[in-house]
Design a protein around this nucleic acid. Structure first.
Length: 682
RNA sequence: GGCUACGUAGCUCAGCUGGUUAGAGCGCGGCAUUCAUAAUGCUGAGGUCGUUGGUUCAAGUCCAACCGUAGCUACCA
């Protein structure tokens, strides 16, 4: 029976490049998709960029472009990165699209019609300087429980407390530095609690993995809360119908983006009338979402509830994966392990990573570790040494001794049958997402082939012209076993599968090609299908990625650091001074009233500082770490009696204090709230 | 703090509903081989299954506590 499958990967957010984390998910999805296609099912694989939200708006502002320009350039870049990794999206769209707007509005209206939407006043922090409400992410202050300074608006890094942003002590806006005020505005809510029983049933019916179901049960038992689906202007997104200044929260329209990308694809293919066959309540098609474990709540609570509320079918399955770590730790920009797709592709072939991730993915939510040493060893020994080697060591006999034509019969049909018998088990592994097990079974088959070849030693027989047929039979068996292996591996290694088809001079492989061995057939001369993965290339990639995040102009202090140290070197202390020496330095609290980049200077910002009753201009080499607009309004500390210094761009009348090695790691000092410009620091 | 996972040979991982002396691949030692992108075959060494306690005739496998790691804790995306 042919299944109709709509498959998605989570939508990458339009604020940065594609990195290893996105790649894990898309590679996982793509393997599943290609497996299903190989089996002859109808698969549509769509994705898109997730574009809305205050973050996009601010980012565009910072870059000095419109949000539309920003998101389109990122969408193009993202799509190219995915193509580079052989990800076979049928459509890579955007949530900022007419289809998504129409669907979001109609779903919202349907929910409202069913009494699932209500409004309620919500009090939130408001940035008076920027004229906007502040998401938790854009506020910092003191933790209400442990008083740790500099904590975000939702929880405390130091003590783990969770709280409301309004409970923060001495809050300040990260956008303007201003002190936020409390304001109330009406918000629109989706009445999620009405869906508690529905969701419980949906989870129990196997739509999620058991570990995920546990987590969801915990949330359900704790009691669901209505979901706030609106944001006040200014916001980049879709206006809520019937309002002037309320927008859909980005997480409302993001999953609808799956439907919208799908609708757009149908439009391109002139099949728009089929939409309902996939999304109506009685649809017999399947919908599969691949996501990371961090966004389970959106996909397994809000999303199915919204769909059902609006009269659509719910997803068939949510496939949740863990996070990527590199050498056992979180990806880190300074260590060079925050690896971007484009950096990877400059140094390494995509199929190395596809193979390695496939060897690790097992369908659970466990994190996946990219151990770089293991990566090199595994790819070389399995892919090159074990699998490709089978073709490499057999093909020569066929080409040189047999005119390129395979024998008419198998030398050892029982061995071939063992390969054939593995099909169901391997298919089951792919279907469950346990590609690690699939690859274990496949490489075990490869071991059998190498043993077989060693046992029959065709190179010995080849010395005797009378044994020509025996040599051909053995080499044919080897080539055929290799064909079977590549068929099994083709979802993981699509590029190598294509190259294998060229080598064997056969049409694209399908699952039914397992039924009949390739015999009495002319093949092409073998050329290496994939080279070895050089450890040096991996090192170059890491170095490249590390450099991309380090400011070249940063002080060379790091070079003095012991190689074993992860943190920046602690600079040696300077010679002792007396208090009189210190007293000569006039440190003052200053408010940054204006900040702008300096034309012609890479590192400098021009700051206008207020010291109470006077203002002065100071140049600061902090451009690599601070966005000028984010500095305006905030307090800092300035050396007020530093001799003025003439620079190419003007005179600098002081120096602001900052710590850190340089590059992105520059940290401007700021006094606790209450300090006023002009106050002496002592 | 609460919750959810995970913690098995140097490395990466298997070990299904508890049942003989705990497995694989890589790496390492030895032997063989030379067709092959120094790839392959045979063979050897290597583990108190995070710790402690418990249930059981029997526990890596169940329970509890603790330690460690990662994540979640909804109006960040």
């Amino acid at each position: 029976m042919t299944r109709r499958l709509l498959v998605t990967s989570a939508l990458p957010y339009a604020n940065g490049a594609i990195h290893l984390g996105h790649l894990l998910e898309h590679i996982q999805t793509d393997i599943w998709v290609r497996f299903q296609r190989l089996r002859g099912h109808e698969v549509i694989y769509v994705c898109a960029d997730d574009t809305h939200g205050a973050a996009t708006m601010l980012k565009a502002e910072e870059a000095g472009v419109s949000p539309e320009t920003l998101i389109e350039s990122l969408r193009v870049a993202h799509a190219a990165d995915f193509q580079g990794f052989l990800i076979s999206h049928d459509n890579y769209y955007s949530t900022h699209s007419p289809e998504n707007k129409a669907l979001s509005e109609s779903i919202y209206l349907a929910l409202r019609e069913r009494g699932l939407i209500f409004t309620r006043g919500v009090e939130q922090l408001f940035d008076p300087a920027r004229g906007m409400f502040l998401a938790d992410r854009f506020v910092k202050g003191n933790c209400p429980r442990c008083q740790s300074p500099d904590q975000y608006g939702d929880n405390c890094d130091a003590c783990g407390a969770t709280y409301d942003a309004m409970e923060l002590g001495a809050p300040r806006s990260l956008l303007s530095g201003a002190t936020p005020e409390r304001r109330t505005s009406d918000h629109y809510f989706f009445d999620l609690p009405q869906y508690t029983d529905f969701l419980r049933g949906w989870h129990e019916r196997g739509a999620v993995q058991p570990e995920v179901a546990n987590k969801l049960t915990e949330w359900l038992d704790a009691g669901l809360k209505p979901w706030d689906i609106s944001r006040d202007a200014p916001y980049f997104g879709f206006v809520i119908p019937g309002t002037e200044d309320k927008y859909f929260y980005v997480w409302l329209d993001a999953p609808i983006g799956y439907m919208a990308s799908f609708a757009n694809l149908l439009g391109q293919r002139g099949r728009s009338d089929e939409f309902g066959a996939w999304w109506d309540r009685d649809s017999t098609a399947e919908v599969h979402h691949f996501i990371g474990k961090d966004i389970v709540n959106f996909h397994a609570l809000f999303w199915p509830a919204m769909l059902d509320g609006a009269g659509y079918r719910t997803p068939t399955r949510i496939h949740t994966h863990g996070f990527v770590t590199v050498d056992g730790t979180k990806m880190s920009k300074s260590r060079g392990t925050f690896i971007n797709a484009s950096t990877y592709l400059r140094h390494l072939k995509p199929e190395y990573l596809r193979y390695y991730f496939a060897a690790k993915l097992n369908g659970t939510v466990d994190d996946i570790d990219l151990n770089l040493e293991d990566f090199v060893a595994r790819v070389n020994s399995d892919l090159v040494g074990k699998i490709v080697n089978i073709a490499s060591r057999c093909a020569g006999f066929i080409t040189r001794l047999c005119d390129g034509v395979l024998a008419p019969a198998l030398h050892q049909p029982e061995l071939w049958q063992r390969y054939r018998d593995a099909a169901d088990s391997i298919a089951g592994c792919y279907e469950r997402g346990d590609t690690a097990r699939a690859l274990r079974e496949i490489t075990a088959l490869a071991d059998l082939a190498n043993q077989y070849i060693a046992e029959h030693a065709p190179w010995t027989l080849a010395k005797d012209p009378a044994q020509r047929d025996a040599v051909r039979a053995i080499a044919t068996q080897g080539v055929e076993l290799f064909r079977m292996l590549m068929l099994y591996l083709s979802p993981v290694l699509p590029g190598m599968a294509r190259a294998t088809e060229d080598f064997l001079a056969i049409p694209p492989l399908t699952w039914s090609d397992l039924d009949r061995p390739l015999l009495a057939h002319r093949i092409n001369a073998f050329t290496p299908l994939i080279g070895r993965l050089e450890a040096e290339a991996v090192e170059r990639m890491i170095a490249d990625e590390r450099e991309a995040h380090v400011d070249v102009s940063a002080p060379a202090a790091a070079s003095a650091a012991p190689a074993s140290s992860d943190v920046s070197a602690i600079e040696p202390f300077k010679p002792e001074i007396g208090i009189d020496d210190f007293a000569r330095i006039d440190l003052r609290v200053a408010r940054i009233v204006a900040a702008s980049p300096v034309e012609g200077a890479d590192k400098l910002l021009r700051l206008t500082l207020s010291l109470g009753d006077s203002e002065r201009q100071v140049f600061a080499g902090i451009r690599s770490a601070y966005d000028p607009t984010a500095l305006v309004g905030r307090l800092t500390v300035v050396v007020a009696n530093l001799a003025p210094r003439k620079m190419r761009f003007g005179t600098s009348e002081g120096m602001v204090l900052a710590a850190g090695p340089g590059g992105r790691d520059i940290f401007l000092l700021s006094p606790d709230s209450g300090a006023e410009p002009g106050m002496v620091v002592r």
